[in-house]
Amino acid sequence: MQHGTCCGRWIGYVAVSSDEEVRRLGRRDVLVTFRGTVTSTEWIANFMSSLRPANLDPHDPRRDVKVESGFLSLYTSDDSTCRFGQGSCREQLLGEVSRLINKYQDEEMSITLAGHSMGSALALLSGYDLAELGLNRFQQQREIPITVYSFGGPRVGNTDFKERCEELGVKVLRVVNVHDPVTKLPGLFMNEHFRALGETYQFPWSCSCYAHVGVELALDFFKMQNPACVHDLGTYIGLLKCPKMVQVHKEGMVDLLAMAKMTLRKHKLQAWPWQDAARQVGNLVQSLGLI
């Protein structure tokens, strides 16, 4: 996939499980992965922290569901002047996922989206988009589960966006480092922790507060000689493989990490390591019913 704000810049890809993998998983999994920030345009988008209505379903705009304007722009923008472009990231994604769903509609299916940093924001936007448009539903009779795996990801939308994702059944696992500043943005102050007094009184600005979506798997790692490691994808994946090296800040997650360690050891991680991590940890999370 490419996004139109940077003349055909490659940002992710869509893959589908082989027949051998289908026999192992028991279903046909469509995997969508997104990389993190690379270009100057993407860095600028990361800091466009104003909220805008997502408005991804023209038949039901839901003006109260708002997302970060920069992420939305990266997802929906189309540069028609680029000879390498094939439409916006959104158009390419919806087209390919729809094609795969139609191709394998007689099989048991699942949709998995994963990304690091900015890529995790695009993964969550995509998962919400697919569910909001109902592309994962077959005439209200069968629903394809959508799961998002976020590695070091920022907040994406407001509390209404969070609640709508939950209502649509989009499952999200956020793997975060407690020292990673990216996971605390946007909404450093105006976030889910500052929208209500107790659980009864909603502040007037609550609809403008950012909120994380899903279940958090919190890791704790920091190296004084290399502060940048707090947001490094390789470190995230490495610590999932060796959970004894970190502290886990969510009850009930220790067993998950131990199981993840055993399964991830069986797979050699390639250039895009989170595709294996998301798939393997995802199977464990879903089987344990954590999300």
Rank of each mutant, 00 (worst) to 15 (best):
C7A: 08
G12Q: 09
G12M: 08
A15S: 12
V16K: 00
S17C: 07
D19C: 04
V22T: 15
G26R: 09
D29Y: 08
D29Q: 14
F34V: 12
R35C: 01
T41F: 00
I44T: 14
N46A: 02
F47N: 14
F47D: 13
M48S: 09
M48W: 12
R52V: 15
P53W: 05
P53D: 06
A54G: 03
N55K: 08
N55S: 11
H59N: 13
D60C: 06
P61F: 02
D64R: 10
V65W: 02
V65R: 00
V67H: 01
E68Q: 15
S69E: 14
S69M: 07
S69L: 07
F71R: 07
L72V: 10
S73M: 10
S77P: 00
D79F: 01
D79I: 04
T81F: 06
C82M: 10
R83H: 10
F84V: 14
Q86C: 08
G87N: 06
S88I: 13
R90D: 02
E91S: 10
Q92M: 10
L93I: 14
L93S: 00
L93C: 01
L94H: 04
G95A: 03
E96Y: 09
E96P: 02
V97Y: 00
V97C: 00
R99G: 03
N102W: 11
K103H: 11
E107P: 00
E107D: 13
I111S: 01
A114G: 07
A114I: 15
G115V: 10
G115H: 11
M118G: 03
L122A: 08
A123L: 07
L125I: 15
S126M: 03
D129G: 01
L130W: 05
A131Y: 04
G134F: 08
L135R: 13
L135H: 13
L135G: 02
N136V: 12
R137S: 12
Q139T: 14
Q140R: 12
Q140A: 11
Q141M: 11
V148T: 09
V148I: 13
G152L: 07
T159D: 01
D160T: 10
D160M: 10
E163T: 11
R164H: 06
L168T: 09
V170W: 06
K171C: 05
V172G: 03
V172E: 06
L173G: 01
R174Y: 07
R174F: 05
V175F: 04
V176R: 06
H179L: 14
D180G: 09
V182G: 03
L185K: 06
G187M: 10
F189V: 15
A196P: 00
L197S: 12
E199L: 09
E199W: 11
W205Y: 15
S208E: 15
Y210M: 05
G214D: 02
L217R: 12
L217W: 14
D220P: 06
F221M: 09
Q225W: 13
P227E: 14
V230C: 03
H231W: 04
H231V: 14
D232L: 07
D232Q: 10
D232P: 01
T235L: 03
G238F: 01
L239E: 12
C242A: 10
C242G: 00
Q247P: 01
M253T: 14
V254M: 01
L256D: 05
A258P: 00
M259E: 15
M262S: 12
L264D: 09
K266Y: 04
H267K: 15
A271N: 08
A271M: 07
W274A: 04
A278P: 09
G282E: 08
N283K: 13
N283V: 15
N283L: 08
S287Y: 04
L290Y: 07
L290N: 02
